[in-house]
Amino acid sequence: MRDGYQDDLHRLNRQLAEMADAAAEAMRRASRALLTADLPVAEQVLGADDELDARRAACEEDAYALLALQAPVAGDLRGVLAVVYCAEKVERMGDLAAHIAGTARRMHPDRVVPSELESVFTELGAETAGMADRVAELIRGGGQGGYAELRRTDETVDALHARVLATITAPQWPHDQRVAVALTLVTRFYERFADQAVSVSRRLDFAATGDLPG
């Protein structure tokens, strides 16, 4: 192994883990803005999204430089390529959190989530932010063993997503179409955020073991 390669790879993984930390914080703040109609918090999430985009670009640039200078093979190559793949997914997680915050801003001063769905969206926010936290832990810990766990959490998010859709399409739904459309979009953003986290954990597992989990 060339001198300095492992240090460079560890630095790449730190960058990626910090991106996951930022995505988790973005989701927490976006959920708070959504549930409380907190416009300043929504604006914070939207402003921070540019920074996450820049982190992704820097992460990819460093990864490509490492590929060019060190020409890693086998497991080392998987590790570098996993960073490139996962950086895109984590950046997308940040985008989805920003979409939630954008919905809160667009609906302000009204709250997006009616009282009867507050507990569901509180749980959606907690579950998805927790998935991003877990992704960061997996990156820092070598990447192996988180896929099955996050798949199970994703199933919980899917069930919450289905619960929201069932509620807003029920004949007794008391709110107008504008609210229903906003909730349809927002719950999809949560669901896609969870999917991206699962995708990251799957690629991390592959990078660590050489086997792509099914």
Rank of each mutant, 00 (worst) to 15 (best):
R56G: 07
E43Q: 13
V135P: 10
Y64H: 13
A24K: 06
A101D: 05
V84H: 09
G47K: 12
C59G: 04
A26Y: 08
L46E: 04
R29M: 07
L39A: 12
A54S: 15
A24L: 00
R134Q: 14
Q70H: 06
A33S: 13
R111K: 15
G47T: 08
S31A: 12
A74T: 10
M131F: 01
E88M: 14
I100R: 14
A54N: 12
E51G: 15
M131D: 00
L34Q: 03
H99K: 15
P109L: 03
E61H: 07
G47P: 11
L124T: 05
A65V: 08
D76C: 07
V135Q: 09
D21E: 09
V135C: 13
S119L: 14
R92L: 11
D50T: 13
P72A: 09
A98D: 01
M27K: 13
Q70G: 06
A148C: 10
L52E: 07
A30D: 09
D133C: 14
L66E: 01
A148E: 12
G94I: 03
D50E: 12
I139N: 02
E118V: 14
Q44S: 11
C59A: 09
M131K: 01
E88A: 15
M107W: 09
Q44M: 08
A63S: 14
A126L: 15
L66Y: 00
Y85K: 15
L69P: 05
V41A: 11
Y64G: 11
A57Q: 13
G75F: 00
A68G: 02
L124A: 06
G75M: 10
V84D: 08
R78I: 04
A132D: 05
G141F: 07
L96S: 09
E60N: 11
G94S: 04
E91F: 06
R29H: 08
A48R: 13
S115I: 05
Q144N: 13
P109Q: 03
E60H: 11
M93N: 00
E18M: 12
T128I: 05
E60I: 12
E91C: 06
L16M: 04
G146S: 13
L124C: 05
F121L: 04
E116H: 14
D49K: 01
G130V: 04
G143S: 01
D76H: 10
L81V: 12
G79H: 07
R56M: 14
A57N: 12
R32N: 09
H99Y: 11
S119Y: 01
D95V: 04
T36D: 11
E137Y: 03
A82G: 02
A22F: 00
Q15L: 10
L46G: 02
D50P: 11
A33T: 06
E61S: 03
A71I: 02
R29P: 02
P114M: 12
A26F: 01
V112E: 02
Y85A: 15
E91T: 06
L117E: 09
M107V: 11
N13G: 05
T103V: 11
A82I: 01
G142C: 00
